[in-house]
Amino acid sequence: MMESSRRNFLKIAGLSVLGIGSGAVVGSRARGASKAFSPNPEALTAKRWAMVVDLRAGCPDGCKECIEVCHRIHNVPKIDNPKEEVKWIWTDFYEHAFPGMESRYTEEFVEEALQGSPVILLCNHCDNPPCVRVCPTKATFRRKDGIVMMDYHRCIGCRFCMAGCPFGARSLNWTDPRRYLKPEEVTPDYPTRTRGVVEKCNFCAERLAVGKIPACVEICRKVAEKAGTEPVLHFGDVEDADSEVREMIRAHHTIRRKSHLGTMPQVYYIL
């Protein structure tokens, strides 16, 4: 579908150039296509993006600012009704983040390690994502760099992906999200969504494309710096043996949410 529309467009482009007689020589269609589109030279790229959450660091403000920034720049509506809530990144307590791993004898350790702060949760950008497998329109798909993306133009709102996701990372827009966004608070450079489509964290694909790290990681660093603590969130190429995230995974025992389900989550937690 897409291929054909692109080809048509380039064909029309070639014809109209000739028609106008501007004298420009148009190359073969294939060459035209490969030339026409290119990534931003500043874009951050990776073989496999991943995140390490160092829970030992403990966020001084309980991850509030991080959630706030993510939801603001992505125009995620604030809906008080928990049934219709939309969330890309959120927190929950240890026993809900890692159900089945809690026990009354390990409680003390967890409490000591987390100092009462909840666990930050987001889409795991699984290597083997069930949401992608079940989507009937490829509206959700896995990019080569591992990011599990949503194409909001294509989603039909069947919610099969919400049933498929074992992490509760997906939200449907049960009504028009603009009802809950004040016009003055909308970030103009990022679209809102319409009613009836599913959405979730995209690892800030739009920021990576212009050379910026994900917003949550950036703000986490700032908050930690201000408070004189270590940042909780770390982001990088887990395929790169010298990357910070790989180094952390090498040095510590990390856990992943519901790793036994085989979805291969790429958000690693250090406790």
Partner: peptide
């Protein structure tokens, strides 16, 4: 439509025109 699909689904964000 081509821009949309290229940016969202394939990654490239820049477009080189005929000239």
């Amino acid at each position: 439509d081509t821009w949309r699909d290229t940016v969202v689904r394939e990654g490239p964000r820049l477009y080189r025109t005929w000239n």
